[in-house]
Design a protein around this nucleic acid. Structure first.
Length: 324
DNA sequence: AAGACGAAAGTGGTTGA
DNA sequence: TCAACAACTTTCGTCTT
């Protein structure tokens, strides 16, 4: 495909493309789907697949729209505190389960069944919309945290999927959307072996690390997530990259860690500390010396931890550290 | 002077009664 | 809910290069 940026015609064509993209080819930024539900009353476009809510308003929908929507929309598009419901439960007609009509007369069996069915659907629909609304908020959080951490798309998808499961199981009720979402993100990172610590993720939330950790454990317990144990090997490339160490050094460090794992030296130890120690040893063996302090900073642990781990590893694996 | 080392006390989280 | 516990951090003094 050739791009004609220099010619006038090319520019025209590009303009056309852009405008047609906006009116027709809208894709959901979360799941990429092109199917949407339009909610004119609220002025929202909702992704049919993942429930993402576009904040852009739908334009030109009847005269009375324009009259009252701007501030309405202002109110609704705000992120943060929950929206006040305009129609409290007391104002909504609720179909009840008693088989009587409004005068108190018994209904026929057929009518009874019908009314039960209606009631069922009413509850279902209401649940559906509350889930959607919650999900829309959650997606906002996901995007915010995810973009700050620079997470790839498939991890965000996984996080959203975990969150939706949690929501459907009613685990979010009574807890903040933010912390459950943070926990889901953490779980997704672990599943895809993307080394992000709980601290890094919790840093971008208002609800501290403790809360996120509690939610994470809740998710593990209630949804049977298959999250592999944190592996120190996953941390190696990132730390080594920060320290500008060679590929040889990375390979050596991984080799050390594999051996350590085989001998059961890694259980219960902070994976970042282990990775740091292995890198330290590898760097000494290969003459690409870095100080304990540098490595500790890159791995986000203290020198003392690096030291303790490296002493342990060197002793147990019989590695002789060459003296400079 | 900088880095490595190790001891001691403190911290936050887990586990089991 | 509490205490015991292991891992990790902080701090600091000493030794080595």
């Amino acid at each position: 495909m050739s791009t004609e940026i220099t010619s006038g015609r090319g520019l025209e064509r590009r303009k056309e493309n852009v405008s047609s993209e906006i009116t027709e080819e809208v894709r959901c930024p979360i799941c990429g789907s092109t199917r949407f539900v339009q909610d004119y009353q609220r002025g929202e476009i909702i992704c049919e697949v993942c429930g993402y809510v576009f904040t852009e308003r739908i334009v030109d929908r009847g005269p009375e729209w324009r009259a009252f929507t701007p501030e309405e929309r202002e109110k609704r598009s705000r992120v943060g505190s929950p929206l006040t419901r305009l129609t409290p439960d007391s104002l909504v007609t609720m179909i009840d389960w008693k088989g009587k009509d409004y005068t108190g007369r018994e209904l026929s069996l057929k009518r009874k069944l019908e009314s039960l069915r209606w009631r069922k659907w009413q509850i279902r629909i209401r649940m559906q919309t509350s889930i959607e609304r919650n999900l829309a908020q959650a997606v906002n959080e996901l995007q915010r945290i995810g973009s700050q951490l620079g997470l790839p798309r498939h991890v965000m998808d996984q996080a959203l999927d975990i969150y939706r499961q949690a929501l459907e199981k009613g685990l979010v009720r009574g807890r903040s959307i933010e912390s459950i979402m943070a926990a889901a993100i953490y779980a997704a990172c672990r599943m895809y072996k993307i080394p992000r610590t709980l601290d890094e993720i919790a840093r971008y939330t208002k609800s501290g690390r403790k809360d996120v950790a509690r939610c994470y454990r809740l998710l593990l317990r209630e949804i049977n997530l298959r999250v592999p144990l944190a592996d120190p090997i996953d941390y190696v490339p990132r730390i080594a990259e920060q320290l500008k160490l060679s590929g040889m050094c990375v390979r050596k460090a991984i080799e050390i860690l594999k051996e350590a794992k085989k001998r059961g030296l890694t259980a219960g130890k902070d994976p970042a500390g282990l990775a740091a120690a292995a890198i330290y040893i590898a760097s000494l063996l290969l003459g690409e010396v870095r100080t304990q302090k540098e490595i500790a900073q890159a791995a986000r642990v203290t020198e003392v931890t690096v030291r303790n781990r490296y002493k342990e590893l060197a002793k147990e694996l019989d590695i002789k550290i060459p003296m400079k």
